[in-house]
Simulated assay, not measured.
Amino acid sequence: MSADVLAVAVLLGSGVTAGVLFAVALSVVPALAEMPADRYVYTHQMLGRNWDPTMPVIVLGSAVLDLVLAATADSTPRTVLGLTGAVLLLLVSAVSHLCNVPLNRSVKSLTPSRLPADWTDPRPAWRRWHLLRTVLALAALAVNATGVAVG
């Protein structure tokens, strides 16, 4: 695979990642925050059905392509930028897997019409972790775009 094709694939993957997370942060998170608990649980369950395995494949696939781009780069700046982009995308994946996914699983296990009396609303924590991974994804996109522009 040529360096140009790899660069386009990395930009596409990191752009989709940043775009999806940004859209969720801008529109979905505020909407979910305004809902009563039962509607939130139902809506969260419906929205979350199709993210796996699509987003993990895009994020991790883009990180791998970043690593390949870094390993085959013809300059130190492109190598460093490729490695940085890969690390940022791996951090997006880590935050998702270690922080957001456990909260998602807890929401998926609920019956919207019968929330437990001791239910703790996960929305504030989920929002914080989501905003962190959104910032990381936007940084990855910026770094990857810079790496392509430098070349």
Rank of each mutant, 00 (worst) to 15 (best):
D38V: 06
R39P: 02
R39D: 11
R39W: 05
R39F: 11
Y40D: 08
Y40I: 03
Y40Q: 13
V41S: 04
Y42I: 04
Y42T: 09
Y42R: 15
T43V: 09
T43A: 13
Q45G: 08
L47M: 06
L47A: 11
G48A: 05
R49M: 01
R49V: 04
N50D: 05
W51I: 10
W51E: 02
D52T: 00
M55S: 02
M55L: 01
P56Y: 00
I58Y: 00
V59Y: 00
V59N: 00
V59G: 00
L60G: 01
L60D: 00
L60Q: 00
L60H: 03
S62M: 10
A63Q: 03
V64L: 14
D66N: 11
D66A: 14
D66R: 05
L67A: 11
V68C: 12
V68H: 06
L69K: 02
A70Q: 07
A70Y: 03
A71G: 15
A71D: 14
T72F: 04
T72A: 07
D74Y: 02
D74Q: 08
S75Q: 05
S75E: 04
T76E: 12
T76D: 08
P77Q: 03
R78H: 04
V80C: 10
V80I: 15
V80F: 06
G82Y: 02
G82V: 00
G82M: 03
L83E: 05
L83Q: 03
T84M: 08
T84N: 06
T84F: 04
G85Y: 09
G85R: 08
V87N: 01
V87G: 01
L88Q: 04
L88P: 02
L89G: 00
L89R: 04
L89M: 05
L90N: 08
L91T: 14
L91S: 06
L91K: 11
L91Y: 15
L91C: 15
S93R: 03
A94V: 10
A94G: 13
S96V: 07
H97F: 04
L98C: 12
L98S: 14
N100K: 05
N100V: 14
N100C: 14
P102Q: 11
P102I: 08
L103I: 13
N104R: 10
N104L: 08
N104T: 12
R105T: 15
S106V: 14
V107P: 04
V107Y: 09
K108Y: 07
P112L: 07
R114K: 15
R114W: 05
P116Q: 13
P116D: 15
D118E: 13
D118P: 08
W119Q: 11
W119T: 06
T120A: 12
D121M: 09
R123C: 10
A125K: 15
W126A: 07
R127T: 15
R128N: 13
R128Y: 12
W129R: 07
H130C: 14
R133F: 13
L136A: 05
A137N: 08
L138M: 09
A140W: 13
L141A: 03
A142H: 05
V143Y: 08
V143C: 01
A145K: 12
G147Y: 07
G147T: 09
G147V: 13
G147A: 15
